[in-house]
Amino acid sequence: MAQGRFQQDFAVDLPLIQAPMAGVQDAALALAVNQAGGLGSLPCAMLDLETLVSELTHLKAHTCRPVNLNFFCHQVPAYDPHQQTQWRQRLQPYFDELGITSNTLPTGASRIPFDHQVANAIEPFQPAIISFHFGLPEPSLLQRVKTWGTKILASATTVAEALWLESQGVDAIIAQGLEAGGHRGMFLSTDLNTQMGLFALLPQIVAQVQVPVIAAGGISDAQGVQAALTLGADAVQVGSAYLLCTEAKTSALHKAAIQSPRAHKTAITCIFSGKPARGIVNRAMQEIGTMPNQVPAFPYASIEMGALRSQAETLGLDDFTPLWCGQNTSGCAPISATELTLRLAGLA
C-alpha cells in the first residue's frame, strides 16, 4: 500500500489500526497486528495500574514498533443511591431468577478515566501513541502527555466533535461511524440522532479538518479499507473483524454469537454500562429495552448487569453479556491477527 502521511507520522507500515477492545484482548493481539505492519492497540480503561504496567512491560519486551494505548476520558458522576435502587428494582426479577442478592453489590465505578495517577504509571514507558475515547483529558494533563513526545488520537462521532478535537491539538481524529461495535465515542452531545454512518460522516470530517482522519465502523475486509481510503481517510481502524482471531480473548459465548445468524441483528444500548454502545441483541436488550430511562449514569449501570452476567455465564447463557460487535462481521475469521491484518491490506 502507498506510504501516506499516517504511516509517516505514526511510524507504521500499513494505514491500519486494530481497534482497542476492552474485555476481549490483551497485548497479544496488538503484537500480532504489529507483526504485520499495522498499528496494534491495547485497551487500558479497565486495567488496574498493576496490570497496566505488566502489559506495557510485556509489549516493551516483544516489540520496538509503536503501540496505541487507549483510555477513557469520561466524567464520573457521584453515585446516586436512589437511581441505583430504582435500577435494581427494575432488575430484581432477574436477580431472583438467578439467585443473586442484589443488596450486597459494590457501589464503586468499574471504569476510571485517564488521570495523573495513570500518567505516572505509564510515563516511564514513554508511549508513542495514546488514543482517547469520550473526549480528551483536562488541558494540563493532555499537555503533560504531549511533553513525552506522544502522538494523540481521539474519537469523533460528529463534525463538531472533530473540529473541537483539532482545536485541542490532537495529531489525528478517528471518525467513528454508527456501524461501529462497542461504545460510541460521543462527548459533545448525548443525542443519538446526531450519529451518522461512516461513509456519511467521513467525507464531512475530511473536508473540515487538516489533521489525518482515521475511518472506523463497519469495515471488515480489504474492499472496505480501500473504500474508506478513497473517501479521504488517511487510515482505517478495524475492530469486530479481529474478534475471532487466535490472539483474541473473546469468550466462547461471544464467539458463538458472532458466528451465528444473531450477529446480523445488532443495536445500540445503554443498559450494560450507562453509555450507548453497539452489540448483538440478546435477552436483556429485548426484555429491558435498549435505551430505557432508568439506567444509571456511566459506569454505574454495569454494577448490576455485571453481577447478572457473571451468574448467567456460569450457566452457559449470554442473556446479560454485552456482546459488543459492529454491523459487519463478514471478515471475522479464526486466524492469526497477523494474517487478518495482511488480508485487510490486500496483501494476503
Rank of each mutant, 00 (worst) to 15 (best):
L178P: 00
L192W: 00
Y79G: 09
R144I: 05
Q223C: 09
V67F: 06
C325D: 04
A277D: 10
F187I: 09
T314K: 12
M196Q: 15
L59N: 00
M196W: 06
T85F: 01
R278I: 13
W87E: 05
A284V: 12
F320I: 15
W324I: 09
G316F: 13
F114T: 01
M291A: 10
E138R: 06
Q210L: 12
I214V: 12
Q311A: 13
T266V: 10
K249R: 12
Q176C: 04
L49D: 12
L198S: 11
G224R: 02
S251G: 13
E313L: 05
M305S: 11
A333N: 08
G218D: 05
E166I: 07
Q126C: 09
H183C: 05
F132W: 06
S220Q: 00
I122Q: 02
I174M: 02
F10E: 00
R111F: 15
H264D: 13
P212N: 05
L317M: 14
L188E: 04
I258Y: 08
N120K: 14
L347F: 02
D115M: 06
Q168K: 14
L56H: 02
G37A: 13
T321L: 15
K151T: 03
A215N: 07
E179W: 01
P124W: 10
A19K: 01
H264C: 11
T250A: 11
R283L: 14
A267Q: 08
P322Y: 08
L192G: 09
K265S: 12
Q208W: 07
L243G: 03
F72E: 00
L98H: 08
T147H: 04
L201F: 07
L141N: 01
Q286K: 13
A257M: 10
E55T: 03
W148N: 01
A119W: 14
A233Y: 03
P66F: 09
L136V: 04
A248T: 12
R90D: 02
N193P: 01
P124Q: 14
Q259P: 10
I258A: 11
S102H: 08
L16Y: 03
N70I: 06
A337C: 03
